[in-house]
Computed example of a mutant assay.
Amino acid sequence: MAEPAPLPFIYQFISGAVAGVSEILVMYPLDVVKTRQQLDSTGATGGTIKCLTTIVKEEGFSRLYKGISAPILMEAPKRATKFAANDEWGKFYKKAFDVKQMTQSLAILTGATAGATESFVVVPFELVKIRLQDKSTKFNGMGEVVKDIIAKNGVAGLYKGLESTMWRHIWWNAGYFGCIHQVKSMMPKPKDSTQKTLIDLTCGTIGGTVGTILNTPFDVVKSRIQAGSSRYKWTYPSLAIVGKEEGFGALYKGFIPKVLRLGPGGGILLVVFTACMDFFRKMRDEKK
Rank of each mutant, 00 (worst) to 15 (best):
M1V: 03
P6M: 02
P8S: 02
Q12S: 05
Q12Y: 11
F13W: 12
I14H: 03
S15L: 02
G16Y: 01
V18I: 12
I24S: 00
L25F: 06
Y28N: 04
V33Q: 08
L39Y: 12
D40V: 09
D40K: 10
S41A: 15
T45V: 15
C51L: 05
I55R: 07
I55N: 06
V56G: 00
E58Y: 02
E58A: 04
G60L: 04
F61V: 13
Y65P: 00
K66M: 11
L73D: 06
L73G: 13
M74L: 15
M74E: 14
E75P: 00
K78E: 13
N86W: 01
D87I: 02
D87L: 01
K91Y: 03
K91P: 00
F97L: 10
D98F: 09
M102F: 02
I108D: 00
L109G: 03
L109E: 03
L109N: 02
G111Q: 01
G111M: 00
T113G: 07
G115Q: 01
T117V: 11
V123I: 15
F125A: 14
E126M: 13
K129F: 15
K129S: 14
R131N: 12
L132A: 09
S136A: 15
T137W: 07
K138A: 13
N140D: 14
G141I: 08
G143F: 03
V146D: 07
V155S: 04
A156E: 15
L158D: 12
G161P: 07
L162Q: 13
E163H: 10
S164V: 10
S164G: 10
M166G: 09
W167N: 07
W167S: 08
R168S: 12
H169I: 02
I170P: 00
W171R: 01
W172R: 03
A174E: 10
G175Q: 02
G175N: 02
F177V: 03
I180C: 03
V183S: 08
S193W: 09
L198G: 11
I199C: 05
I199D: 04
D200G: 01
D200L: 05
T202H: 04
C203G: 04
T205M: 04
I206V: 12
G208K: 01
L214Q: 02
V220Q: 07
V220R: 03
K222N: 13
R224W: 10
S230Q: 14
S230K: 15
T235Q: 01
T235C: 09
T235A: 09
S238W: 03
K244L: 11
E245T: 09
G247D: 11
F248N: 10
A250D: 08
K253L: 05
K253P: 00
I256W: 06
I256H: 05
K258D: 11
L262D: 13
G263T: 08
G266T: 03
L269W: 02
F273Y: 14
T274M: 08
M277N: 11
M277I: 11
D278C: 07
F280Q: 00
R281P: 04
M283A: 09
M283F: 07
